[in-house]
């Protein structure tokens, strides 16, 4: 049975695009990383992802939480995880709220948190709603 990993982004503001993902502002102080379904995440794509987020936030001198949808990632290398561990900037990244609605998504997310926890607070949630609530709280969003 195919897994439905559709994410409704029409109400969000696009802020960037990389080789394997699209980036949105969900609301003030909350960003979202939406990987292309079935994408690979390696060191290069991981660096691009963090760079796009930080360029946006630094330009606006804003600190924000970032939602990441893990169900759509097919593979993620150890090198990519190492980038997510070291390169986020706590001055601009309030937290990472991972969304793993499927067993696979939760597997990818939990492995990421367990082996290479980023420098900023990171938690895994089963639903978008739970993730957004925590993201708002952490970012001090309205």
């Amino acid at each position: 049975m195919a897994i439905d990993t559709t994410i409704e982004t029409s109400a969000w503001t696009p802020i960037g695009r990389s080789e394997n993902a699209e980036f949105f502002e969900v609301e003030p102080r909350v960003l979202a990383v939406v990987p292309f379904d079935g994408c690979d995440d390696n060191e290069e794509t991981a660096r691009a992802s963090i760079r796009i987020q930080l360029e946006y936030l630094r330009a606006r001198q804003t600190r924000a939480s970032v939602l990441v949808f893990m169900d759509r990632v097919l593979t993620q290398s150890a090198a990519a995880r190492e980038v997510y561990r070291c390169e986020p900037d706590p001055a601009f990244h309030a937290c990472f709220a991972l969304v793993g609605g499927t067993p696979f998504g939760r597997a990818v997310g939990s492995f990421f948190i367990g082996i290479h926890p980023p420098r900023v607070p990171t938690r895994l949630f089963a639903t978008f709603g739970e993730a957004l609530a925590w993201a708002r709280l952490t970012a001090g969003a309205p």
Binding site: M1, L74, T75, Q76, S77, A78, F104, G105, A107, I115
Partner: peptide
């Protein structure tokens, strides 16, 4: 080998490969 179906077996393979990769690193 992964089926890339992201089902139960594929998830197990993902875990295995990720663990092996980390141990190797």
């Amino acid at each position: 080998p992964r089926s890339l179906l992201r089902d139960k077996d594929d998830t197990a393979a993902f875990f295995f490969n990720a663990i092996a990769e980390e141990l190797d690193r």
